[in-house]
Design a protein around this nucleic acid. Structure first.
Length: 480
RNA sequence: GGUCUCAUCGUCUAACGGUUAGGACACCAGGUUUUCAUCCUGGCAAUCGGAGUUCGAUUCUCCGUGAGAUCACCA
């Protein structure tokens, strides 16, 4: 790479289409995306579909949908093209074979002559003699010419390595980890180990960001870079996210959740990005909440944690509430469109928006909307158990409770129904009944909503309006 | 087992070698919103162990211990 001008930063996210994206995969995508955006570079999506057996139908579309839903838009990719395509490895087989041929010509790759059984025997032998298995210990003297029907292996050059990782710092290993790894499989597809190096070079990727599981293969990759005569890109290895319980890395088998499901559950994309970034990264200040723009501005690889972080939903929930509160009413209104309870769809827009203002501070996820608002749209079923379960209210007997509701009913009949007037009416009712607000207001609140929580009482009644409020009180009284 | 990596409150984390080791989530207790959620205040709670370097180690070195990753014709 020329040193006179720094190359444009290009990062990539290179998933294999074997399922959905969990928070771990989103994080590597996010970090790569942040780095590209921060430097006004390019972010590339490349599908690594070289293992036909593991491929899951439709997961490429699912991955793309997830990236788009999160706003992690890429500049080049299988569905949108770009100058360095194709962006699907199965469409690039000729490219890998051309690069492989270079290695063969240079005497740095050879056909693997062994059968699976023979290989297994070598491994077994190594195991019983308690030695690490190395294929190169069995490297054939005169391998046959490669005809594509057997694996093609790298003729490695064992040596100690030493490299820099933007996240982990300086890393090193001895020659004992270098081996003759497979470059092209007997089905003609390249291995990840070979394909990603070729692709990153062809696509001019400058920064490789990936999970910790690749750290132990790094020396072998370095060996390939050298065999191919390629410059090393910048490496950044991010630690794993661990499952909520246990210390294992988060994986699909351990109940890792599809990130798209978090969106369906009413978590905001910006919450997810903020949360996932903060799992292993912070800007060194005490700031916890970041907008996407702030993440782009402040993110840096060298402040990424070296150790794995555990996923904590409670914190995610809290953060989502915070982000919901930061939304403008108009923005929130748009985002909750699909979350309203069924009955809300017949209500007029103005009323719905008003209800939304009342509950914005109470939402933890958009999915909470129905339980928080359904009584604004449809008459609730009285449930006196809720009254009996209330510490304060249970001190009164049913007759006393009902007579308080009657008093409320008659008092509110003569009140205007804006929030202030309702408040004044309620205050007066406190005096005439001689009740404590904790009792009187709790009772009225339940009688009109039959919901576990609701906005301030006067706001709630004013929003419901006089007719509906009185009618609910009547319904409560008759059902007692 | 070999190799590599990591290690601060329960969790996410901050701390030029010098701080009463800070913040956030969760939890607990008060308060405001004349109930609930939100919000505010306060509380609980951590440097894995042992040597060494240093006037002084969370921080540097070494040894343990623990944890994770990887040793595929998977990525």
């Amino acid at each position: 790479m020329s040193t006179s001008d720094t190359p444009r930063i290009r990062t990539r996210f290179a998933p294999s289409p074997t399922g959905f994206m969990h928070v771990g995969s989103v994080r590597t995508a996010l970090f790569a995306w942040l780095l590209a955006r921060q430097n006004h570079g390019d972010f590339i999506l490349r599908l690594e579909d070289t293992d036909q057996k593991r491929e899951v139908e439709g997961s490429d579309a699912h991955i793309i949908a997830t990236l788009n839903a999160l706003g992690l838009h890429y500049d080049e990719g299988p569905d949108i093209g770009g100058d360095f395509g194709p962006y699907r490895q199965s469409d690039r087989l000729a490219i890998y074979h051309a690069w492989a041929q270079k290695l063969i010509d240079a005497g740095r790759a050879y056909a693997d002559p062994y059968s699976q059984a023979e290989l297994d025997a070598f491994r077994e032998e190594a195991k019983t003699s308690k030695k690490a298995f190395l294929y190169r210990d069995h490297r054939p003297e005169n391998p046959p010419a490669w005809n594509g029907s057997t694996p093609l292996r790298l003729k490695s050059e064992p040596k100690a390595y030493h490299w820099h990782d933007e996240v982990m710092g300086d890393l090193s290993t001895g020659p004992e980890v270098i081996d003759d790894i497979v470059l092209i499989k007997s089905d003609g597809f390249p291995t990840y180990n070979f394909a990603h190096i070729v692709d990153d070079a062809e696509m001019k990727v400058t920064h490789i960001i990936r999970g910790q599981e690749f750290i132990s293969s790094m020396p072998n990759y370095l060996n390939i870079y050298e065999a191919l005569g390629l410059e090393r890109p910048v490496f950044a290895t991010v630690p794993h996210i661990m499952a909520e319980s246990g210390n294992k890395k988060l994986g699909k088998r351990d109940g890792a959740k599809d990130v798209l499901d978090y969106l369906k559950d009413g978590y905001l994309p910006e919450t997810l990005l903020n949360f996932i970034a903060s799992l292993g990264w912070n800007d060194g200040t005490e700031q916890e909440l970041f907008t996407v723009d702030e993440l782009i501005e402040k993110f840096s690889l060298n402040r990424v944690q070296h150790s794995g972080a555990r996923f904590d939903v409670a914190r995610l929930e809290w953060m989502n509430g915070q982000h919901i509160r930061l939304l403008s009413l108009g923005d929130l209104a748009q985002r909750v469109e699909t979350f309203w309870p069924e009955e809300a769809h017949t209500a007029n827009e103005e009323y719905r928006t008003h209800v939304l203002t009342l509950v914005q501070d109470r939402l933890k996820t958009l999915h909470d909307l129905p339980t928080l608002t359904s009584y604004f749209f449809t008459d609730p079923t009285p449930n006196w158990q809720m009254v009996d379960d209330n510490k304060q209210l249970s001190k009164l007997n049913r007759d006393e409770q009902v007579s308080l509701l009657r008093a409320a009913h008659s008092a509110l009949q003569h009140t205007d129904f804006d929030a202030n007037s309702v408040q004044a009416g309620l205050n007066q009712l406190l005096e005439t009944t001689g009740q404590k607000p904790g009792i009187l207001f709790s009772l009225i609140r339940l009688a009109v909503s039959w919901a576990p929580f609701s906005p301030a009482l006067n706001d709630t009644l004013a929003a419901l309006g006089k007719d509906r409020t009185l009618q609910r009180l009547e319904a409560a009284i008759t059902s007692a």
